[in-house]
Design a protein around this nucleic acid. Structure first.
Lengths: 328, 328
DNA sequence: GTGAAAGCGCTAACAT
DNA sequence: ATGTTAGCGCTTTCAC
């Protein structure tokens, strides 16, 4: 930087002002030019670390997540990464399940790097217990929430998603709609079922408990559950599956009976697990979990908190859009 | 750090020595203890940025990849991340396709952070052209290679994978084995086919060109290609699919004819795309692309180069293991 | 064995 | 509008 200053015949301060586009420091265009030219000629590259040290801000956010366990983690990272980039921030990734190193240690390392804020993201929507160090900097939970509700969080609107899926089926003329639910107890299961019931009630369709069956969140689970539904005296003409993997199994059950999708039985899934939903035959209509959007919102909330704004609502909800494909 | 020094009644130098376990600086156990206690009592957390500035090493590697385009990118990141962590290095992630920002700019940002080395990873195995800035620091290509071969790279052993898949089918007693290949021209397509031919030749099985059919790398492509194979006068008893998505389509074609897997037709895929392979019914036997391993190897190579070791072989190859499930 | 002192490359008052 | 100066929090020679 000294070299640049010398070559442009100005002080380092001026170079700093120019390079940072410092507002208020009216640098004449001509000086500015000289500095920029000198920097370019010298191939000057600012040292972000030194800048961080002097300015006392690192421009980094940390994100803690189970990076590879689920294909979903990366979606959150992607969303957060892009939004962070827009704000000129970098993302430091720490994995919360990796090589045995305990989570708190990983977070500690993020703090040593002076991350300005932390995003703690879960792979599936649930209550979590975060290490206390997290609270030392602005922090937001993504796709999860802490039991005591003291940390701001952003979660998917499971109820809205369930309602939307069911509504789509109602709109297609179905009245007898089965639902295969996930293990009870998880927010995803509870919320989606609640949305299903809400949509039916709103449409004045009676809820038949025989049409509600729980199953393992796997293709096999979906297969058995679908069979159970199809074996009813008056089987459903449409099935809302708690997730795409179960929908995959349901497809098999339906096809095995020589029934067609969506002609004989319409199907809608949940999760929009691309590799499944987009490649099933016919392609699966499903509700998407807005991972990228949640990641981005997390970053926004972090920025807001860092800017001094109090963590507004304690839990923000993000819409789960319906993706129309060909199974309804 | 000054506080710690004061509390332990030593100089900052001593604190630094203790905290970094500096070899050669024989600090008596007693002093060491005092320093450590003081640090703990004060909740001292070293500032990694300041350390980097003073020591002139950042402990960061940068990785450039299309973060979310493919479910695979994350595997490379995961592998690299874990290995980097083992070596006490952090990983800075830059996306090479994200929000329009051009790739060279992203890399420039990594260099401003003084990343000590760069991993450039592709989502599918191919030749790439990397921006010149990449060469300013130790760099290695993962799952790709540069046309002029001047950068070290680590790529999957496609030929070995193809051979392994075919061998598995031969071992199961199949003699008439069809293969559905990917778009010709890509290393994956060429290599896998070559492995197929090698395995057949080694087993003295004649190669029948009617059993080799190319298709789009999608489920639909696999579906048509499988039908084409099954329509032959003497259809194959086993099909090696160029990737798992095509295998997904092949499953449909086979099942539609009332044939069973693996009873009537055995299937093996390639890629080990978890969400597909593990959930198809029956679960798909497939060859895995060693993304995590490649990421880890990339980090190792970076470390070696940074340590002054010349980039040994220009292209390192990593085995593609066969994952046995239930489709053979 | 431990400490003093000189930076690392930058930012930000404060002066001018 | 630009320069002077004092750090930011740490590492690392070099003395003692």
């Amino acid at each position: 930087m000294g070299d640049v200053a010398e070559r442009a015949s100005v002080s380092r301060t001026t170079v700093s002002f120019v390079l940072n586009d410092r507002p208020g420091a009216g640098i004449p265009a001509e000086t500015r030019r000289r500095v920029l030219d000198a920097a370019a000629a010298l191939g000057y590259r600012p040292n972000a670390g030194a800048r961080a040290l002097a300015a006392r801000r690192s421009d980094w956010y940390g994100i803690v997540t189970e990076i590879v366990t689920a294909p979903f983690a990366v979606e959150v990272i992607k969303g957060a990464h892009d939004r962070a980039a827009e704000r000129g921030k970098f993302l430091l990734i720490a994995s919360s399940e990796s090589g045995g190193a305990d989570e708190a240690t990983e977070i500690e390392k993020l703090l040593e790097q002076r991350a300005e804020g932390l995003i703690y993201a879960a792979t599936w929507h649930r209550a979590v217990r975060v290490p206390d160090v997290v609270r030392e900097v602005p922090a937001v939970l993504v796709n999860c929430f802490d039991a005591d509700g003291t940390l701001p969080s952003v979660v998917p609107d499971e109820v809205g998603g369930g309602r939307r899926a069911t509504q789509r089926l109602l709109d297609a003329g179905h009245q007898r709609i089965g639902i295969i639910t996930l293990d009870p107890g998880m927010p995803a299961s509870v919320g989606r079922l609640q949305g299903y019931e809400a949509a039916l009630s709103a449409a004045q369709v009676a809820i038949d408990s025989r049409l509600v069956v729980a199953a393992d969140a796997t293709a096999d689970g979906g297969y058995s559950a679908a069979n159970q539904l199809l074996d009813l005296d008056v089987p459903p003409t449409a099935i809302f599956c708690g997730n795409d993997r179960m929908a995959m199994g349901a497809y098999d059950a339906i096809k095995e009976r020589g029934l067609s999708i969506p002609g004989d039985v319409a199907v809608v899934g949940f999760d929009n697990q691309e590799v499944i939903a987009a490649y099933l035959r016919p392609r699966l209509t499903t509700v998407a979990l807005p991972f990228q959007e949640m990641g981005a919102r997390g970053v926004d909330m972090l920025a807001a908190i860092a800017a001094g704004q109090p963590p507004a609502v304690s839990s923000t909800t993000v819409d789960c859009p319906l993706l129309e494909r060909s199974s309804v």
